[in-house]
Amino acid sequence: MSEPSFLDTTREAYDAVAAEYAEHFRGELDRKPQDRAILGAFAELVRADGPVLDVGCGPGQAMAHLRRRGVAVFGLDLSPGMVDVARWANPGVRIDVGSMTALDRPDGALGGLVAWYSIIHIPPEELPGVFAEFHRVLVPRGHLLLAFQVGDDPLHLDEAFGHAVDLDFRRLRPDRVADLLADAGFDVLARTVREPVGAETVEQAFLVARKRST
């Protein structure tokens, strides 16, 4: 069965820009204390609960930050080029090629899951299925952290870092995402929205949710 076209175009775009993307965003968390605080709080929640998966890990900044806080986290990304960059930046850490739409993990295998600016490439109609997949792989009361840009209108790029791409960024409303998580069997524990920092042009949202035990 062929995969959805949005996966093809997203993979091709990140394969094309992987090296430049990683260099451009190197040290990004150093400039964002609120983001570091959110990741730190998530680390406190998941540290003792088993392995944590960073889906759509990119070059691995969030994953590295969690590991420095004692979290047993490994990575997954759709783009083989981005996985190569992440493995170079995070030696000895397991980082696989794969899609969040069909996670290659057994039911209840993960203590936590983080999607740090990766659901932004999922069409809205596909999000319920993605959140159901997140729910499937988490242990009861396992925790989920989402980060995404706030808004209603998608952003489309035809060019990035000097490369031709076909890439859509779906901005989302926190209340809508919270509703979808609730429908998928999660309780939303916290939601944070902060103002843009640096080159950002819209608000940024962070949701922490817990899988219901029943």
Rank of each mutant, 00 (worst) to 15 (best):
F206R: 01
F186E: 09
E195M: 10
R210T: 10
L207H: 09
R173T: 03
R176F: 05
Q204Y: 04
T201P: 04
E203A: 15
T192S: 05
D175R: 03
A190W: 05
V197Q: 05
A178V: 03
P174T: 05
A182I: 07
V197T: 14
R194D: 09
V197M: 04
T192K: 04
G198T: 05
A184F: 10
A209D: 09
A190T: 12
P196N: 13
G185S: 04
V197H: 09
R194K: 09
P174N: 07
A209H: 10
F186H: 07
F186P: 03
P196R: 13
R212E: 14
V193W: 02
R191D: 12
R194V: 04
A199H: 14
V208A: 00
R176H: 13
R176M: 11
V202P: 07
R212L: 11
R210F: 05
V177S: 11
F186M: 10
V208D: 00
L207E: 09
A199C: 02
A178N: 08
P196D: 13
V188E: 03
E195I: 01
F186A: 11
A199T: 12
V197F: 08
V208K: 00
R210I: 08
V188S: 03
K211R: 15
G198E: 11
D175H: 01
A205L: 12
D183C: 00
D187W: 03
V193H: 01
T201Q: 15
A182N: 06
V177W: 02
D179Q: 06
F206H: 11
A205D: 05
A178E: 13
L189S: 00
A178Q: 07
F186G: 06
V177P: 08
E203W: 05
A209I: 13
P174I: 03
D183S: 06
A199Q: 10
A182W: 02
R173S: 06
F206A: 11
L207G: 01
L180M: 13
R173D: 14
E203Y: 06
V202N: 13
K211S: 13
R210C: 11
R176L: 11
P174L: 04
A184R: 07
P196W: 12
F186K: 08
E195W: 05
E203D: 15
G198M: 08
A182L: 00
R191H: 13
V177F: 07
A209G: 07
F186S: 08
L180K: 01
E195L: 10
Q204G: 04
A178G: 12
A205R: 02
L189N: 00
A182M: 02
E203K: 13
T201W: 04
V188A: 07
V208W: 01
D187Y: 02
D179V: 02
L189Q: 09
R191G: 08
A184Y: 10
D183I: 04
V177G: 10
A178W: 01
D179W: 00
R191A: 14
G185Q: 09
A190E: 12
A184H: 07
R210M: 13
Q204V: 14
R191I: 14
R176Y: 07
T201E: 15
R194P: 00
D183V: 08
D187V: 11
A178H: 04
A199V: 12
P174E: 10
L189M: 06
V208I: 14
F206W: 13
